[in-house]
Design a protein around this nucleic acid. Structure first.
Lengths: 342, 342
DNA sequence: CGCAATCATCGAACCGGTTCGACAATCAGG
DNA sequence: CCTGATTGTCGAACCGGTTCGATGATTGCG
């Protein structure tokens, strides 16, 4: 493999001149520049990433830390990852994907060893053990997800509280007065998945204000448990006419449940979900939903991260917490309620 | 951040001694080793990855090249990726995930710049343009997927031909005599997705031998197109009593299609899919299926790749092409056929 | 015509590790 | 007690880039 010394020799100049000719950081005569470029081309020269990283203290790599707990719903994660990797590449960065179970150790490893210029964290827990490590790291970091303490980091997430309100308001406006909300499994909450209770508490509050009965239940993340749970909820609250779903696995399981019960949507039951358009399309989900915009969130996080990485000035700016507003995509799965579902 | 020079100074030894004490590559007195280790601990020393890569010509990073075409079914990909990243980490490697659309340029970039010690390629096309680049690269490579020309590379894939035969034989044994096979979209085949026709051709051949009528159709990868297609196929072949699905999106769409038509599985229609257990679980798919074992394939590819990376001897060994045998997981979605579906 | 300013290039140092060869100290054997 | 092998440590070179300061060649100006 050709080094810059080979290029310099081929072009008949010194190594430093070759470097300047390629980077353009100092004026070089047109004649010499041509020779260097030709030599680099002829030798198929590509800078050695390790050497460059050592010299410039920049790796042009971002770390993406995603934790996959046993019960995590992996398919939904893909969209976030693609948002990150594609945006990073557009900005000239590659992405180191770290899925290690021990997120703290993983984060420490990639930051301490200077493998990455910055880090995006996903699956943020309310009291995430990785955050202190990230704050202490020399590289900037961005979060996709909303922790209890946002200090020292840029944070991006869907506005789950507004999402809860939008869902309740939409069904209230159609005349529904008793609703069921299916969230994520209880252990997701225990682990610190704040988005679950943020949506739930805001929905409960709004329901209270509007005089709507809202039954908030934990979910499951797997078949057949999630299907059984949906059946159970529909049995338990026979007067409920609307279903709010903040749980991808439950949304995916719902069609067969309504089929088994002979329920029609929206005739017998109105449904609103919260997931991405991509997810809806690939899994044939016929429900109106609030777009969770995973690719957009990943892209926003990366753009802000790269700004901080590349500009000393940007690194001094105050940290941002940015929520994207829920957007309700109508699929005609909601309608005014029938007097009784039974 | 502490360097090895800091550690050496703190321990009162030379840089080289510190290095040997930490790596154990030369005998060091117990006394000095203790002092060096203590100093490293006290200064929270972590080797700089770029410097180490430069010195050892090893990055301890593997490249994972995954292409996401417009119509690719992203969620299924996640399983492969996790198989790769987790196995890599177990073996001491991190993973650079590259999703760039221009796979050839991406591959050239990561190999030429020596960012990675080896490369795993996914979404292999029959005549994949990345393969010549990978063969010419100084790093070893492994494929998940089966190309037309396997020379110079280690190849891992599900045995799609045997899968096609197993599916046909299973339904034939139950008494079915007319079947439908839904594959991937036609453009996936045009792009070179060999697994589509490998399964199809083997299934057709076996059906011919057994005297079974098999209607092989292309699929779609999205709603609502894939749902419409399934309806169309069931309309077109009313005498068919069994359905073979080599297409995740079609499998995901089938429950609502059978519901809309009032068909019962397996009472009215027997169904066999080809996807992963994880996929089946998360999407409530109630069908018997051939396990596609994405995590196992990813893990196999990485293990072989790392062997070649780490051992000069292994690099001389002949290249392997390894198929994993289809395993039919029963979910009671197949039964002897009724006389007529209509 | 001589001097200062400008321009293009070069040499050397540096980034932070690893590794080779040399050397001093210790020890065993004759 | 001298020699030769063994053990532990050090200094220097190297990996392949980037960058700073210096230098020689031009050019502009008085």
């Amino acid at each position: 493999m050709a080094t810059i010394a080979d290029v310099a020799r081929e072009a008949g100049v010194s190594r430093s001149t070759a470097s300047y000719a390629l980077s353009g950081k100092r004026p070089i005569s047109e004649e010499v520049r041509r020779r260097v470029l030709a030599a680099a081309e002829a030798l198929a020269y590509t800078p050695n990433a390790g050497a460059r990283a050592l010299a410039t203290a920049q790796t042009k790599v971002l770390g993406l830390l995603a934790q996959f707990h046993e019960d995590e719903f992996a398919p939904a994660m893909m969209q976030y990852i693609l948002g990150v990797t594609n945006t990073a590449r557009d900005l000239g960065y590659d992405t180191l994907l770290v899925t290690e179970a021990d997120g703290v150790r993983a984060l420490r490893r990639v930051t301490d060893s200077r493998m990455v210029d910055g880090v995006v964290l996903m699956n943020i827990a309310h009291d995430d053990a990785r955050l202190p490590v990230l704050r202490a790291a020399p590289q900037p970091g961005a979060l996709v997800g909303f922790p209890g303490d946002c200090s020292g980091l840029d944070v991006f997430d869907l506005d789950f509280e507004e999402t809860g309100r939008v869902m309740v308001e939409h069904l209230h406006r159609l005349g529904h007065r008793e609703l069921i909300l299916v969230s994520h499994p209880e252990h997701v909450v225990e682990r610190g998945g704040a988005y679950v209770w943020r949506l739930r508490d805001a929905a409960l509050e709004r329901a209270r204000q509007l005089g709507v009965i809202l039954h908030a239940a934990y979910g499951e993340s797997r078949q057949p448990a999630v299907g059984r749970l949906l059946h159970h909820l529909l049995d338990t609250y026979p007067a409920a006419t609307g279903l709010l779903i903040n749980n991808e696995a439950a949304a995916a399981a719902l069609p067969s449940v309504t089929y088994e019960r002979g329920l029609r949507v929206p005739g017998d039951l109105s449904v609103i979900g919260r997931y991405s358009a991509d997810f809806a399309a690939t899994f044939s989900l016929p429900y109106s939903f609030v777009e969770s915009a995973p690719d957009r969130l990943g892209a926003m996080a990366v753009r802000q991260l790269v700004r901080r990485v590349e500009s000393q000035a940007a690194r001094q700016e105050p940290f941002v917490v940015r929520f994207i507003s829920p957007e309700l995509v109508s699929r005609d799965s909601t309608a005014p309620p029938r007097p009784s579902r039974a």
